[in-house]
């Protein structure tokens, strides 16, 4: 097995996730795409951990999973707040930073 087959799979999932973040209107879908990105990072960590025969990569993959859980929790709370205030979760409407 080549190391690259895992890394390139991760890269592909990462880019698909980026596309999802950029192209989706729905806040929940954006969050899902972010999960995809985080997973691709985990594949990298685990693959390199297997490559080096060291568990450190796995430990960090677990940390990433925990952080992802926290991220989804807070992210969904924000999406709900936007929904409650605007009756829509189209993140294009949240443009208070407009210059």
């Amino acid at each position: 097995m080549y190391l690259n087959q895992f890394l390139i799979l991760a890269a592909a999932l990462f880019c698909i996730g980026v596309y999802g973040v950029l192209a989706r209107r729905n806040g929940v879908l954006v969050l899902m795409s972010i999960e995809l990105i985080l997973n691709s990072v985990n594949i990298n960590l685990v693959a390199l951990s297997a490559m080096n025969g060291d568990v450190t990569g796995q430990v960090f993959a677990l940390f990433v999973i925990a952080v992802a859980a926290a991220e989804v929790g807070v992210g969904l709370a924000i999406v709900l707040l936007i929904y409650r205030n605007r009756r829509s979760i189209d993140i294009a409407e949240a443009n208070l930073l407009k210059g």
């Binding site: 080549y2 990462f14 880019c15 980026v18 596309y19 950029l22 192209a23 490559m51």
Partner: peptide, 28 residues
């Protein structure tokens, strides 16, 4: 979405190329 697709594809191309260059045929 088309700009997004372009960015995604661009990133994929860059990453694939650099992974190929970097790890070549390293085996597990």
């Amino acid at each position: 979405r088309w700009i997004g697709a372009l960015v995604g594809a661009g990133m994929l191309a860059v990453m694939t190329y650099s992974l190929w260059e970097g790890f070549g045929d390293d085996k597990l």
